[in-house]
Amino acid sequence: MKGKLRPVGSPVPSPRIHEHQELPWAAHYHTEFMGSGTEALSLAVAIAIRRHSQVSTPEVIIPAYGCPDLVSAICAQGAKPVLVDLLPNAPHMNDAGVREAITPSTVAVVGVGFLGIPERLEELSGICREHNLLLIEDSAQCFPPASASKSHADLVVLSFGRGKPINLMGGGALLIRSDLTGLAKEAVGHYPVAVLKVGTKWLVKRLVFNLLMMRLPYYVLERLPFLGIGETRFHRLETISRLDLPERVLQAGLRDFQLRPLIHQRYDIELAGLDARGWKCLTSDRSEISRNDLQQSVPLLRYPVLAPSTDLRDRALAVLNSAGIGASAFYERTLPQIDGVEAAVEDRDYPVASDFSSRLLTLPTHENVTSADVTLIGRILLSVTEL
């Protein structure tokens, strides 16, 4: 097949008039739409700081492996990101490390969902309650958020940008638990409101965006070096705004997500033999989240696999991409190793997170992945392992 299968991202859905379903979290959270997921997280940090107004230099705990936008959102509020190492062979923060990182200046802990795999929010919630901290669920990569049904988190971050579970070409949301709306009101009102207009310009942008996600256009775009597609970069958060998001745009995103095929289940079957060769499919660590109140699996953003070694991961990446499969090492390194981040965090090693980042391989799970693609991927990974 000509072209290249993109690593992540679903097409932007078409809004319809008079479409409505209740938001999955409506029973527990108030929704505040924001200009981006990063801006939503920064607002969550602002609320946590307001709750601990006596702290002069607030600190926020995050995992040592993650998106540099975590750091951007925290620094934009004048707070300090405090990094915690991971559990072995997992995307979750080490519980003992979280406890050790807590100081009198800590105001919040951010539990970050990973490619559709939620953090262990119940454990983190218990730690936060012990120390009177706010728990922020960063669900930018997970939908619906794990707190939608059990409300473990005080605040929940969603993102509607490119490459996220619901792609609306931008925007995000902060879900504020009902008992915190009074505290949050002043912090929220501090930011201006931008209006998203679904007119001709937006509709044309949607058509072009969706066209560029197809195999041949993506193949061409990826080879334009000035675009930096797939690169992990640190960007300072300069502005924060709320967003007036038309309901029909969000409703289209919800509908599209619910109709998405469960590609990760095909990988579970095709890659079952890799475990015996030293690979680890991280879907085994995934909690099943309800869809429409039924205990069913929901789509993964990408399919994450840990290779036995960095060398084997890199060989697999090279062969997969040369075969037209958009496989990725994702962030590739820990947060302190990303240019621009090192100035904002403590300069130290995080050995488990470093090992995780050096062996991680992610595979596409969007609706354009075919059974033939999954079969090809399985064949390539097995052949690379046997070399």
Rank of each mutant, 00 (worst) to 15 (best):
G3H: 13
K4P: 00
P13M: 14
R16E: 15
H18T: 06
L23T: 02
A26Q: 11
T31E: 15
A46I: 00
I49L: 00
R50P: 00
H52D: 06
S53M: 02
V55L: 03
E59P: 05
I62E: 06
P63C: 09
P68T: 08
V71I: 14
G78R: 01
P81Y: 11
V82G: 01
D95Y: 02
G97R: 08
V98D: 07
A101P: 08
T103H: 04
G113Y: 02
L115A: 04
G116A: 00
E119Q: 11
R120D: 09
G126W: 01
R129M: 09
E130M: 14
E130L: 14
L135C: 04
C142H: 02
K150L: 05
A153C: 04
V156T: 12
G161A: 13
L174A: 02
L175F: 07
R177Y: 01
A187S: 02
L203W: 07
R206P: 10
V208M: 15
L212H: 04
Y218C: 07
L221F: 12
E222W: 03
L224Y: 10
H235V: 06
H235C: 07
E238L: 12
T239D: 13
L243H: 08
Q251K: 07
G253W: 05
L254R: 06
I263V: 15
Q265R: 15
Y267T: 03
E270M: 10
C281A: 14
T283V: 12
S287P: 01
E288H: 08
L294Y: 10
R302V: 15
R302C: 15
Y303Q: 10
P304G: 09
V305R: 11
A307C: 11
T310A: 14
A327I: 08
A327H: 12
S328P: 09
A329T: 11
R333K: 15
I338V: 11
A343W: 11
R359A: 08
T362A: 07
E367H: 11
T370V: 04
T370M: 05
S371Y: 08
D373A: 02
G378S: 02
R379M: 03
S383T: 12
V384N: 07
V384A: 07
V384K: 05
T385H: 05
L387T: 08
